[in-house]
Amino acid sequence: MTEASPEDKLAYLKAQKQRNLFIGLALAAFVIIVFFVSMSRMAQGLKHDNADIAASASAES
């Protein structure tokens, strides 16, 4: 086997760092999207629950 030159090693490490940065940013974006989707769905559920409570309270009166 031939040994890679120092320039090849540096180019490989630079490309690896760029890939790792991209993967990290993509993962962070996914987590943020999941967080906001979850928050919006929970907020819709709370509004729906409050509407049900108000409707049952007015039906009892």
Rank of each mutant, 00 (worst) to 15 (best):
M1P: 14
M1G: 14
M1W: 11
M1S: 12
T2R: 03
E3D: 07
E3P: 08
A4G: 05
A4I: 05
A4L: 10
A4N: 08
S5Y: 00
S5Q: 05
S5H: 04
S5D: 02
S5V: 03
P6F: 03
P6E: 04
E7Q: 09
E7V: 00
E7G: 08
E7Y: 05
E7R: 06
E7S: 01
D8A: 05
K9G: 00
L10W: 02
L10Y: 01
A11D: 11
A11R: 09
A11Y: 04
Y12S: 07
Y12N: 03
Y12R: 07
Y12F: 14
Y12M: 08
L13W: 14
L13C: 12
L13S: 11
L13Y: 08
L13T: 06
L13D: 11
K14D: 11
K14V: 04
A15E: 06
A15H: 04
A15N: 03
A15W: 00
A15R: 05
A15C: 02
Q16L: 15
Q16H: 14
K17N: 03
K17M: 06
K17Q: 08
K17A: 13
K17C: 04
Q18N: 08
Q18S: 05
Q18H: 09
Q18R: 09
R19V: 04
N20K: 06
N20I: 07
L21E: 09
L21S: 02
L21D: 05
F22D: 04
F22A: 10
F22G: 00
I23M: 02
I23D: 05
I23S: 00
I23T: 03
I23G: 00
I23Q: 03
I23A: 12
G24W: 01
L25Y: 00
A26G: 12
A26M: 08
A26E: 09
A26H: 12
L27V: 00
L27R: 03
A28T: 00
A28M: 09
A28G: 12
A28V: 04
A29K: 00
A29H: 01
A29I: 02
A29V: 02
F30H: 01
F30V: 09
F30P: 00
V31T: 04
I32H: 00
I32V: 09
I32L: 14
I33Y: 01
F35V: 15
F35A: 13
F35C: 12
F35N: 03
F35D: 06
F36W: 13
F36A: 11
V37I: 10
V37R: 03
S38Q: 03
S38V: 14
S38F: 08
S38W: 08
S40M: 13
S40Q: 07
S40Y: 11
R41W: 12
M42N: 11
M42V: 09
A43L: 13
Q44K: 10
Q44T: 11
G45K: 10
L46Q: 14
K47N: 13
H48F: 14
H48P: 05
D49P: 06
N50F: 05
A51R: 14
A51W: 09
A51P: 06
D52K: 13
D52A: 11
I53G: 10
A54S: 14
A54F: 07
A54P: 10
A55W: 09
S56L: 15
S56T: 12
S56V: 15
A57F: 11
A57Q: 15
S58R: 15
S58Y: 11
A59L: 13
A59N: 15
E60R: 13
